[in-house]
Design a protein around this nucleic acid. Sequence first.
DNA 1: CTTGCTTACGAGACTCGTAATAATT
DNA 2: AATTATTACGAGTCTCGTAAGCAAG
Lengths: 312, 312
Amino acid sequence: MNIQQLRYLQEIVRHDLNISQAAETLYTSQPGISKQIRQLEEELGIEIFVRNGKRIASMTEPGQQILEIAQRLLLEADNLKRVGQEFRSQDTGTLTIATTHTQARYALPLAVKRFIQRYPGVKLNLHQGNPTQVAEQALRGEADIAIATETLDQYDELVTLPCYEWHHCLITPLGHPLLEAGEMTLEKLAGYPLITYDAAFSGRGKIDQAFRAAGVAPNIVLTAIDTDVIKTYVELGLGVGLIAEMAYLPERDMQLRSLPLKHLFPANVTRLALRRNEFVRGYTYHFIELFAPQLTREIVLEALRKTKAADQ
Amino acid sequence: MNIQQLRYLQEIVRHDLNISQAAETLYTSQPGISKQIRQLEEELGIEIFVRNGKRIASMTEPGQQILEIAQRLLLEADNLKRVGQEFRSQDTGTLTIATTHTQARYALPLAVKRFIQRYPGVKLNLHQGNPTQVAEQALRGEADIAIATETLDQYDELVTLPCYEWHHCLITPLGHPLLEAGEMTLEKLAGYPLITYDAAFSGRGKIDQAFRAAGVAPNIVLTAIDTDVIKTYVELGLGVGLIAEMAYLPERDMQLRSLPLKHLFPANVTRLALRRNEFVRGYTYHFIELFAPQLTREIVLEALRKTKAADQ
DNA sequence: CTTGCTTACGAGACTCGTAATAATT
DNA sequence: AATTATTACGAGTCTCGTAAGCAAG
């Protein structure tokens, strides 16, 4: 039994039990993998895969247990390498952040700027995706940190930490009647065509919740994944926008005005997620602190330690 | 990097950084281990050990982190083998129980008898030791289950489960005045020479506690590790004995009489411990249930799942 | 001078890639 | 017919054991 065999196993499963594809992504040969898997099976004395003649049909029950253990083992193997890198060269390496448009565009830039100044030797990757993709990238170890407002806390294998709280705000074209309409209410909002986020993005859930709770039916004429699209159509006069407050930049968005909606919609919490049991590099802690100053290294460590509760 | 190298590392540390001894217990050669460790260090790009010329003096800081991760990895590697054995042959293998004299002699026999009838193919090993030794055997993976009344819950790496509760009782020679002395009190007990357990054994702590709390000074003339020694000296008339109630066997101990002391000393809880994160064989669950019927497989599983909280 | 780690070297095992084979869709 | 897994085989590498060297206590 060796680590390589387990890596083969993991990759086969990731490719829906297709050895050929696994071989390709691992830059090795089909037969090599095939043989190693047979050897692993022989050594453990069990069949991992159910075979139909020469096709792999599914996994046996012991095979599934083996897989789970193998994945934990491989994570530890990665951790060994990380520790090596960490000590070999404290301030070089790679930091991959998976996040959504809103975070990448409006929340992260300052932290990123400071980070690359402080750690010129660290290659910073930003992977953009929807909240589910973001979570899964962290889950698969493709990203070191996941940052999003939704979804993250639904995965047992991720440890999540609250970064900051924000509210929605209203944006309108210049001179829009709502700007002079006094106290904002859901009813007033419902009187105008609305433009806001797609479902599953940037707190859209909270918006729907609030309208539903009040028994008011909003007139949503357009939904977008990113704020820039919303702004564009608000400027065009298609309607008024409901966006995340940090996405309104007064000095840039000269053609728009904003009004706070703190009293209408519940607060949103943007969270970051780390993969459970994964060794965290020093500069990763630092990035987290740059992004959310209250999340010091100690606090993050504590969270990682504490929340090992529900794993597996 | 391979699993073997990590095993070498672990064994070196277990032997206080002595490669030669590690080689011996692993049935391999000094140079082989030495070289593999050098290779591991080279691959990880760090020094694991601090060397004084040709002696290993201590571990570096990264080395200690490597060790921790390596141990978790090795545990998973063992688990892989266990899963294999479990499915290859459900009812054969080995079950090693580390426990104290009192448990081995008075609490376990019935469960053991039933177990070996049910699982003739399982080799049952009983390792006897003091509570600390018992815990450490479980900790090192030398025992599958640890059973004792003390100490077990002081180790983060062990998951403990309560098995049963018991009280101390008094044993005296036939015709002893205390048998006719009515309601037993600490004061009356203190009026006679006492024979009981050594510190750190079988609830001796609770006995001392009770006397101290009552401000009564007992006259302990002899302490022993096991109940049979205590019984022997009580029979000889050296004093009266304070023993665990399950250690008094009316049909065997014809030369002794017993009196309950439930009202004088707090209850003791005998617990069993399993190593955290370790794959548990089916027959092990069954043994636990034979020993403590309320600890069904589901309950044990739940406990293992839940209490992953504080690990590492 | 004994203990204990490292270097040197060679035998054997193992891994992996290519090519051929066989089975499934 | 095309895709995909297995078997066969050979080159290169790696592991491990023996023997020799050398530093520390």
